[in-house]
């Protein structure tokens, strides 16, 4: 696949799917502010996916709605982390922390991309992502220094989520071209910046970051291999659209 398309599909699909998952907290948040926070982040992420699908459309791919709502799971390039059900708040918060630290660093790097339309989108998105990271850090620090139960649950969530989080950095066949053409710094470099960034926050809590080298990453998402959770999500997300794909909203 063309390196630009390869990169954009991964970025856009991550946003769309995690945006949809975050929206599932609407009405269910443990406190009102968290209900609003996850709903707002969902709205941001859908906006981000729209910008990225818009770039794909400029490159000759189908309209954003068509791309978002008519593909099936094997055609999605999101990492498996984003498609997992929301679970408990401990899991959703941990996923949000691990994912959005990578996002902020990714889009900061993409602000310098050789592909100017993507650099422009990245310059826009990185400012918004700061708020996602600020939110995640606040709650990780709060719960990671709270009661014994809170610390134990957050530690368990961290241990269970990390293998999936490492799947964010799964490389594709286009990786070498992506780096050599200056599109992006590459997944290995991003991963090392991410590790430093999450370690800095976790060091201010009672939580321990396990040795990442000892963890087997959950891969496959970037190649279209997904958990059984993705297809039902897509079916639900596209249910109305598929009733009449030609409807004018």
């Amino acid at each position: 696949m063309d390196p630009k398309l390869d990169l954009l599909y991964r970025l856009a699909d991550d946003q769309l799917i995690l945006g949809h998952r975050n929206s599932e907290w609407n009405g269910l948040g443990p406190i009102l502010e968290e209900d609003i926070a996850f709903s707002s982040m969902a709205q941001d992420k859908l906006g981000h996916s729209l910008q990225l699908y818009g770039l794909l459309h400029q490159l000759g791919e189908a309209e954003p709605d068509t791309v978002a709502f008519t593909r099936n799971a094997p055609q999605f390039h999101c990492c498996q982390l984003v498609e997992l059900p929301i679970g408990g708040y401990d899991f959703s918060l941990t996923r949000h922390f691990l994912f959005d630290h990578a996002e902020l660093l990714r889009f900061e790097a993409l602000a310098g991309s050789s592909y100017e339309p993507l650099a422009q989108v990245a310059r826009k998105l990185r400012g918004e992502l700061k708020y996602h990271v600020l939110h995640a850090n606040t709650w990780m620090k709060r719960l990671g220094t709270a009661t014994e139960e809170a610390i134990e649950r957050m530690q368990r969530a961290l241990n269970e989520t990390l293998p999936y989080a490492l799947g964010i950095f799964e490389k594709t066949g286009a990786e070498a071209d992506i780096i050599s053409s200056g599109l992006f710094i590459g997944e290995d470099e991003l991963k090392s910046r991410w590790q430093e960034s999450i370690a800095r926050v976790l060091s201010q809590t009672a939580l321990e970051l396990p040795e990442l080298q000892t963890i087997t990453p959950v891969l496959g998402g970037r190649q279209g291999q997904h958990t059984p959770h993705l297809q039902p999500l897509l079916d639900e997300m596209a249910e109305v659209f598929r009733l009449d794909p030609t409807a004018d909203w």
Partner: peptide, 9 residues
């Protein structure tokens, strides 16, 4: 700061 997310984005 109570929460970085309010009634609108």
């Amino acid at each position: 700061l109570r929460t970085p997310f309010g009634a609108t984005l």
